[in-house]
Design a protein around this nucleic acid. Structure first.
Lengths: 240, 240
DNA sequence: CGGCTAGTTGACCAGCTTCAAGTATTGTGG
DNA sequence: CCACAATACTTGAAGCTGGTCAACTAGCCG
């Protein structure tokens, strides 16, 4: 269970049992947090990378006048930053959206693991590539997609990401965050998220009740969202 | 002149003459392109990383219905992707916005240089960190900043990035791209970019004529844009 | 000179925000 | 286990930001 991280990385490279032991040994002890608590805040000097073990978190930024943007949603198995490096000063914050279990990982330890095993190096770079591609696609959403498209796109992306770690069954998965969180992540107001959700439900492509999302027609939803899963590089599609 | 790349990397680490020779040797021969030509298009299997030598380029994505989003602006000295890895398939395109000189760099060569010199490794990771921070800040712009704020923020960022490579003198620098390009990069329409530019000029903080931008009051512009230069990690602010 | 691209302006419109109020749902202390 | 508060969700009405459409101007190059 600690290692949805491994489960995800297996999509990026064929890790051996040794590789997996090495990675497991790099991860610190689990820590817990309630929702709305922060792991790092802007301005901190972080001591290690953070690995999400259970629950959802986000990287976010607050502007001086109170506006908040969620830069990225972090799911179990996600590393909060690229593996190679720690900034001297956080330029954004890292906070829990739900009750959260996480662990710290030293960047130097991960780099050392990458030196030791080309497969680990490959897997970690694959993970960094996918994270960066998700940031790209988020810009596209925020820049040119409409409100309904953005929400639909988010659901498609969550479907694929959660599926990688076995958290989707039969097109159904939990979305344990509030509509206000979705609003902060999509650059919309909570009110308009609500209305967009209703519009999406009205298409018949999804159901959403009590924070359980059911995708009835994935390819229909993908079409609506202009979603192309290529950016998630799902088959260890990497070379150097 | 080839090496605005080095000039930029010096902001991330103290490179020795040997380091710089090694990096210079990694870079392929210069190639030229006219504006609106592409280096890679979505779906390509890229053979190497691309380094911008002269002129401006962008990473962009076209949606099936014709909408275009510029994901990132690339300036002289910029590497188009994180250094460690090449995707098997491009999930976005890379194109010239002006006449362009660029060169290819093998990802494996760069990784090898990083193995050989901790300073090079440090500098390359610093570069990757800054690129990723710029993507974060772009999401913030697109998500919560108004039109005028977005344009102002873009100008602030360009000021700092171009300043790193010595392309700013006295608050003045060239912006060799069209208002339509700015629109595609900020998620706005060309018409509204035009009006926002007029609004910005009316504040007296900037002048913009014949694609020469003059920032009369940088800190005033930063305040207007809610710009905090911290994310550019300007002083080799990195640890592992 | 003519054709193309870039920039500018005006009028109108739509998508999304804002504000406000009301209904569920969840959590908490007695 | 209930009462109550707090949080999350939903709905309506009005307004603003930015989009759309269309036309016109200015510069550039063959």
């Amino acid at each position: 269970m600690t290692n949805l991280f491994l489960k995800k990385l297996r999509h990026g490279a064929d890790l051996t049992a040794d590789d997996e032991r090495l990675l497991t040994a790099s991860v610190g002890t689990a820590q817990r947090l309630n929702s709305h608590q922060d792991i790092n805040v802007e301005g901190d000097r972080p001591l290690a990378l953070t690995l999400i073990i259970d629950g959802w978190a986000c990287r976010y930024r607050d502007l001086p006048d109170g506006r908040r943007m969620i830069i990225a949603l972090l799911l179990p198995g996600d590393l909060c930053e690229p593996f190679g490096v720690l900034p001297r000063r956080m330029d954004h914050s890292l906070g829990a959206l739900t009750r959260l279990t996480y662990a710290q990982v030293a960047a130097s330890t991960l780099r050392a693991a990458a030196y030791q095993s080309a497969r680990i190096e490959h897997a970690l770079w694959w993970d960094a590539l996918v994270s960066s591609a998700m940031m790209n696609e988020r810009s596209v959403s925020l820049g040119v997609r409409s409100a309904v498209e953005r929400v639909a796109h988010l659901f498609c992306e969550l479907h694929f990401r959660l599926n990688m770690i076995g958290h989707v069954s039969d097109g159904r998965f939990g979305i344990p965050i509030t509509q206000t969180d979705v609003a902060n992540a999509t650059g919309m107001t909570p009110v308009h998220v609500n209305r967009s959700l209703q519009a999406l439900r009205a298409t018949g492509l999804i159901s959403l009740r009590e924070r359980q999302l059911v995708i009835h027609d994935l390819s229909g939803l993908e079409d609506l969202a202009l979603f192309d899963p290529g950016y998630l590089h799902l088959k260890g599609t990497l070379m150097g």
